[in-house]
Amino acid sequence: MKAFFDPRQKSHDPQHFMARGQRLPSPEAPKRADILLRGAQAAGCHVETPPDHGQAPISAIHSAEYLSFLQTIHARWRAMPGAGDEVIPNVHPANRTDSYPSSPIGLAGYHQADTACPISAETWHAAYWSAQTALSASEAALNDGVAYALCRPPGHHAFGDLAGGFCFLNNAAIAAEHLRCKGLRPAILDVDVHHGNGTQGIFYERSDVLTVSIHANPEAFYPFYWGHGSERGKGAGLGSNLNLPLALGTGNDGFIAALETALDRITCFAADVIVVALGLDAHESDPFQGLTVTTEGFGAIAAAIKAAGKPTVLVQEGGYVSDDLGANLTRFLDGYLGR
């Protein structure tokens, strides 16, 4: 299996993370990439550096206004007297129709949903190459049937004009739209422990991309405001979004049962390519402790996806530092390859 990764993705090194009112080390640390890279290599992946596909596929998903923000905000922020090293919002608009601000503080609140997506001088370049990694894997999957994109920072919490939850550019959405522009009919299958709220938001009023997410019930789990079973799409997209929230602590059997439902919906959509938003944080030892999928469970999840018989792009999302992270990726990739 081909895999793609660019070392420039490690340059983003967030220092700020808050949980329950405490400032903690960010779980989305660069060493995640090292662990995942070793996990991919252990599965026999041939790792390549992605070529530059340009900004156009990114701009097909994210607004020019937002991309300008990502590229310029850090310099503007640091120019303010007394500014910290990272762009971190502390005030937010009541809704997205309020006035568009001109100050760096106001812009941060408008374009960053929470404090888990601090922006440094290196963030834009890391996110850019993360997106290029997903684009390269989508091209390879059409030729080879499957490819793995080691995307870091991850992407599925990023909306078209809003960062959040460690995410800046929505890699899975960018890959899916790239494939759709080639005349394909993509389905995005999100298996991260957290709901892919940004992905849902991007395609919520569209019928040409199916979005399906299996995740811990957001009633008591991030992202809280999205991911409920009643969210089915809107307008032209009504019926093209499926959320399958699971009770906290659900293990292999419950996850596989939800996956069967998800794959049935993908079949009914007549998708001819699947973009998997591959979170490994549903594992029982992941720091977020939402679900209790085992390492062997990831192999079974991968085998079920492979059985759908569609070209598949594996786009890395969550999965945080633990003794099992690398092994979980290896087992997933081995499971997809029938080992």
Results as ranks from 00 to 15, higher is better:
Gln9Asn: 09
Ser11Lys: 05
Phe17Met: 14
Ala29His: 13
Pro30Trp: 11
Ala33Phe: 06
Asp34Cys: 09
Gly39Phe: 07
Gly39Trp: 00
Ala42His: 08
Val47Trp: 13
Gln55Val: 15
Ser59Met: 14
Ile61Leu: 12
Ile61Met: 06
Ile73Glu: 00
Arg76Pro: 00
Ala79Asn: 07
Val87Lys: 00
Ile88Ser: 00
Thr97Glu: 14
Asp98Ile: 06
Thr115Trp: 06
Pro118Asp: 10
Ile119Lys: 01
Thr123His: 04
Trp129Ile: 03
Ala131Phe: 11
Gln132Arg: 08
Ala134Lys: 02
Ser138Arg: 06
Ser138His: 03
Ala141Asp: 04
Asn143Cys: 14
Ala149Leu: 10
Ala149Met: 09
Pro153Val: 10
Pro154Arg: 01
Ala158His: 05
Phe159Ala: 12
Gly160Pro: 01
Gly160Lys: 09
Ala163Asp: 05
Gly164Arg: 00
Gly165Ala: 12
Leu179Lys: 01
Leu179Val: 07
Arg185Pro: 01
Pro186Ala: 03
Thr199Glu: 01
Thr199Asp: 03
Ile202Thr: 03
Phe203Arg: 02
Phe203Glu: 00
Ser213Gly: 06
Leu248Glu: 01
Asn252Met: 12
Phe255Leu: 09
Ile256Ala: 13
Thr261His: 14
Thr267Ser: 15
Ala271Trp: 00
Asp272Gln: 09
Val293Glu: 06
Thr294Lys: 07
Thr295Phe: 09
Thr295Ile: 14
Ala303Gln: 14
Ala308Val: 11
Ala308Pro: 08
Leu314Phe: 10
Gln316Pro: 09
Glu317Tyr: 02
Ser322Asn: 15
Leu329Glu: 04
Asp334Met: 11
Asp334Ile: 04
Arg339Met: 08
